[in-house]
Write a protein that binds this DNA or RNA. Sequence first.
DNA 1: CGCAGGATGACAAGAGCCTTGTCAATATGG
DNA 2: CCATATTGACAAGGCTCTTGTCATCCTGCG
Lengths: 161, 161
Amino acid sequence: MQRLPRTPRGAALMAVIEEAAALHLRAQAVVEQLHGRPELTNACRGVLRDLARLGPRTVPQLARGRECSRQHVQVLVNRLAADGMAELIPNPDHRRSPLVRLTPAGRDTLEAMWRREGDVIDELPTALQVGELEGATRVLREMRLLLEGARPLQVTKEEQR
Amino acid sequence: MQRLPRTPRGAALMAVIEEAAALHLRAQAVVEQLHGRPELTNACRGVLRDLARLGPRTVPQLARGRECSRQHVQVLVNRLAADGMAELIPNPDHRRSPLVRLTPAGRDTLEAMWRREGDVIDELPTALQVGELEGATRVLREMRLLLEGARPLQVTKEEQR
DNA sequence: CGCAGGATGACAAGAGCCTTGTCAATATGG
DNA sequence: CCATATTGACAAGGCTCTTGTCATCCTGCG
C-alpha cells in the first residue's frame, strides 16, 4: 500500500495539504470551545464575518461569495435576524431583496469572538519567526490558487438547473 | 472593526491559520469531485484510511484515534461492512468486539483513490521548491502542536457522561 | 409600455455528519 | 463472584448543505 505521489515534490505537496488539514481541524476545535456552544453556530458565524468584512449585502450576494446555495444562506440569515445579530434594511436597488446588515449586537458578538481568538493567538508560546510564518502563508496561498485552477464561477440562472 | 491579534507575530499566525483553512477546503472540494459521488462518503473514506494506516482495529479503538463518538464510528463501519469494503473478524482479545479489517475490495478502492489524488498532485504546475514545502509543513505541524497544548485525551467511562 | 424570463424569498424533503442517551449483553478486575 | 466498565445497537435530534418547487417580484427587450 503506497502513499501515492510518486515525485518528491508530489510527496511534499501532499504533506503540506495533510498538515494544513490537521491544523485547520485543530484550530476549529479550539475556536469551537472558545466561543462555547450557547453562542452562534459555526455557519452563522461565517455569515456574520462576511457581513463585517463586506458590509451590507443581499442574501444572494452572500451566497455567491460563499459558494453555497442561496437557500441555505437565507436560512442562516433568517436565524441571525431572529437572534438580533443582523437586520434587514430596505435595498434602494431592489425592492424585493433587502440588504442584510450587522446590528450593534452582532458587531459586539463578533468583536468579542475576535478578541477571544486574538488573545489565544497572541499568547501562543512559539519560537516561530514572522518570516517563517509569512513563508508558510505564501506557500499555502500559492497551493490554493493552483488547486483552484481554471475554476468555473458565477453561473446562476438558478445554477443552470 | 479590527482584525484582532495585536502583535505582528499574532497577525502572522492568524494568516497561516486562515490560509491553511482555505487550502483545506479547496483540497476537499477537489478530492470530492475527483472521487465523485457514487463512491463512499467522506467520513467512510476517513475510516478506510485509518484502517489502511493502522491495520485491523476495533470500533472503539478507531473512535478514540479519530476523536469522535464510538457510536458514530460504529455506524460508519457497519456501512463499510455492508458495502463490502471492510469485514469483521474474530478478536482474540475480546469476544464481543470484533476487529475491523479492510477487504481486498476496500484496499482496491483506497488505492484507486490514492492513485487519482497522486496524479492530480504530481501534475500541479508549480515553481514551489521542495525545501519551501518542507518549511511550510514544519510550520504547520508546529502550530498544530501548539494548539493541541495540554489537551485532555483518553478519558472514557462513556466519556464521563 | 407590456411581458417573458430571470431573480428572490419561503418552504419542504432529504442526505451526510455528528452528538447524547439508553439498553442489554459481555468483559474485567479486585 | 460481583460491581463496574465496555461494547454494539437503536433512537432522537441538531447542524450543514443540497435540490426542487412556488408565487412573487424585477428587469430588460422589443
